[in-house]
């Protein structure tokens, strides 16, 4: 895979930047150029917003499959995290015993290595989540 595909998303992935619709106030992650609720009224007006990275587990699973780029991480925890700003985010939960993960568990985002594109491809970075001791 070539570099630009990952490079162009880096701001949003590295800093958890989403967008807010100035018409209805809904916050989206990943960023959108149109608000699904306000449609045309939101076009050209969506504002960037940085999420706090805080959240709670909305649902999760423990992945036991062989997944390209993630082979050496299994079993790993995938989760959907509910953020106080509104949007839910898909990501891994790490630095935790998978058996301890539960719905409602407080977590926060950290910057981590996500996957590798084989032996010669680029290493991809982004967000994962860890248990939050001070929610």
């Amino acid at each position: 895979m070539v570099v630009p595909r990952f490079w162009r998303e880096r701001r949003y992935r590295y800093s958890l930047i989403g967008t807010r619709c100035p018409v209805c106030g809904t916050v989206y992650f990943p960023p959108r150029s149109v608000c699904p609720k306000c449609g045309r009224k939101s076009m050209g007006k969506m504002e960037e917003v940085q999420l706090s990275g805080k959240g709670k587990v909305y649902s999760y699973t423990i992945v036991h499959q062989n997944v390209l780029g993630f082979k050496y991480q299994k079993p790993y925890v995938m989760a959907i995290i509910e953020t106080p700003e509104g949007p839910k985010i898909t990501g891994q939960i790490v630095d935790v015993d998978p058996e301890e993960v539960h719905i409602g568990m407080p977590v926060h985002a950290v910057f981590r290595r996500i996957a590798e594109d084989g032996n010669s491809g680029i290493i991809q970075y982004g967000y994962k989540f860890v248990p939050d001791e001070n929610p």
């Binding site: 992945v63 499959q65 993630f70 790993y76 995938m78 891994q92 996500i114 996957a115 982004g126 967000y127």
Partner: peptide, 8 residues
């Protein structure tokens, strides 16, 4: 990208 598969 974050590691999700269809079964997951």
């Amino acid at each position: 990208f974050l590691g999700a598969t269809f079964p997951s």
